[in-house]
Nucleic acid binder design. Structure first.
Lengths: 348, 348
DNA sequence: AGCGTTACAGCAAGCGCTTTCTATCCAATG
DNA sequence: CATTGGATAGAAAGCGCTTGCTGTAACGCT
């Protein structure tokens, strides 16, 4: 029914071995023979059987990309950049590799499941994007998995995630702490003394680091933080909306709201507006990531730009072995403060 | 080096066949034996070899999802919904399936390449999302590929894309024409007579259908369209920004701008604002899709909501054989007009 | 007690490809 | 002219798993 290598071989009057070599192009084959084989492939409309080839060669051309939420442009942009680097040449048959984007939904279990699935497929490489869950048993399980993958020859790269010691994984870490600090320093510099903070979900490295940066800035300025000023929630606009109303209820005198990311900040803006507060005259707002839509907010969002596409591209190249890993296997990617209309001096 | 089925079998004192059956759970195995095998699997930390299994069973647990742009939430949302339905139970070993999200970047060649790659991997199903390229040779090539995939047992589902006759593919088509018409009718009802239209890239079904709907509404209202009122561009904010400046240059008297989608509309808003025009007092703006950020635009965007997540979920279930395909293999998914602040009566 | 069943378990034959080792041919060399 | 070696091509042994078919015990029935 389906065309196999043997069929092509028969048609081209050569042995299966020769056809395989023509297709993989890693062994000398006379030009005339090659041409005959290629013609047969074409005539029969032959398509290599991936699993069989992977089994025989003990490697596959799958590359896994783990993301927390594929519907979030933060991950979409990174995934896109990673994938663009993966498709390129440098591999076997045609050099095409299949990027597998896996959506963990932020769930530790699914993350582990996907890692196992990828291990099962003998993936050529795996890139994990975004923050990790800070839960000891889970973190250990993931680390163990990464180590196994590495031992099996799968290249593991972390993009926008803290290093995973002893796993052999290359890490391109975002400087969330530094960015968070810079952002809050900017607000403090503007004169703000009462700042609300809408943090992401607890138990996530990204959440913690950004919050730590914020607090470091407060501490450095001698501002004592009121516990009521911090609210946790998911990384989406809805959470930002609700958290802002909560913050306003707890302390109506806040003059600035710092959000865990841009989507959250957008929700915060909506809540403030509905509460009759002007941005930035009454309350300043700041986000994080600088996603494409942030500049279209009204007023445009002050935020910290993360070079998502650049970092993703680099991670992709490293995963494909087309770029040297950073010394020590760890590199820190810094963000850049983008001051725009949503932040200004406090009222009064 | 790596643990194989045989190792597990030896450890559990059974034959490899038995281990395989325990793992696949599709053949009676005595409880005591099963337990022994499972323990051995656990102790040896055995992970099934996907390729080998796929080869022997002649099926794989990969499901392909083709998207035009993974960084665009339009696709991210659909992909996320599809994937959520795919992960579920109902399959082999653990019922886990690996969703492969492939980013075609809107390129016909890459689309074909990915389809071949998926065919090579003997994917269990393939879901193609978003509009198709309207280019005869390419369309024919894709159709042929889809037919082949179908013949090889791969279930093919189109989500948000026109039907592909004679390919056996199930189609969940968005009613772009109807949505576009309704949107423009709304604007006309408001009193607009001079409407600019920022269309997507040419040669795409989505672009054409939305534009056709727009024109049908104009025609029905007896409005003669000025060719200067239509500009083509990519489906992103930047294109919307530039196209709007161009429209304004061509005809400063426009009172409304209809964009191909929400991102484009956001860019249009930015351009209008920078040109000193108020929305909607001076110019009304409308988008399409109703992506999450649209409601946060200021003013909130009037648009057509497409049930992306629902359609994706349904496509995913159909792809997994967990839901009956629609009669005739074709279903039309309608959009819903969302009237918000960005549209109002024309000035004067 | 004898026999048909039922419920498991194992054998062994592939699945379609890669790759090592070996064979062949022919040009170049002494 | 015999010999050596480079360039190709083929034979065949797997890669690790699934599954049809073949036992074989234990069970229930008459």
């Amino acid at each position: 029914m389906t065309v196999t290598l043997a069929d092509v071989a028969a048609r081209a009057q050569v042995s299966p071995a020769t056809v395989s070599r023509v297709l993989n192009g890693n062994y000398p084959v006379a030009a005339s023979t090659r041409e005959r084989v290629l013609r047969a492939v074409d005539e029969l409309d032959y398509v290599l059987n991936g699993p069989a080839s992977a089994l025989a060669a003990a490697t596959s051309d799958l590359v896994g990309i783990l993301v927390n939420d594929i519907a979030d442009p933060f991950f979409g942009i990174m995934a896109s950049a990673i994938q663009a680097e993966i498709g390129g040449p440098g591999g076997r048959a045609g050099g095409e590799r299949l990027a597998v984007v896996c959506n963990t939904g932020g769930s530790p279990e699914r993350e582990l499941t996907y890692l196992t699935l990828l291990q099962r497929q003998r993936a050529a490489a795996v890139v994990l994007t975004g923050g990790a869950v800070e839960n000891e048993p889970h973190a250990a399980a993931v680390a163990a998995k990464l180590r196994k993958l590495g031992e099996a020859g799968t290249r593991v790269v972390l993009c926008g995630r803290p290093p995973a010691p002893e796993t052999g994984a290359i890490a391109l870490t975002f400087d969330n702490r530094g960015g968070g600090r810079e952002l809050t320093e900017h607000l403090i510099g503007l004169g703000h003394r009462r700042l609300g903070y809408i943090a992401g979900p607890e138990e996530r490295t990204t959440t913690r680091h950004r919050l730590e940066g914020h607090r470091a800035a407060l501490a450095a300025a001698g501002i004592e933080e009121d516990p009521r000023w911090t609210v946790h929630g998911r990384y989406d606009r809805r959470a930002g909306y609700e958290a802002t109303l909560e913050l306003l209820r707890r302390d109506p005198s806040l003059t600035a709201v710092v959000a865990a990311n841009d989507s959250v900040a957008l929700g915060a803006c909506a809540a403030l507006r509905e509460s009759g507060l002007r941005i930035p005259e009454d309350v300043s707002v700041a986000g994080f990531d600088d996603l494409p839509f942030s500049i279209d907010a009204v007023p445009a969002l002050t935020t910290v730009r993360l070079p998502l596409a650049e970092a993703g591209a680099r991670a992709g190249r490293i995963a494909m072995g087309r770029e040297e890993p950073p010394p020590g296997g760890i590199a820190t990617v810094r963000g850049e403060l983008m001051v725009r209309g949503s932040s200004g001096g406090p009222r009064g």
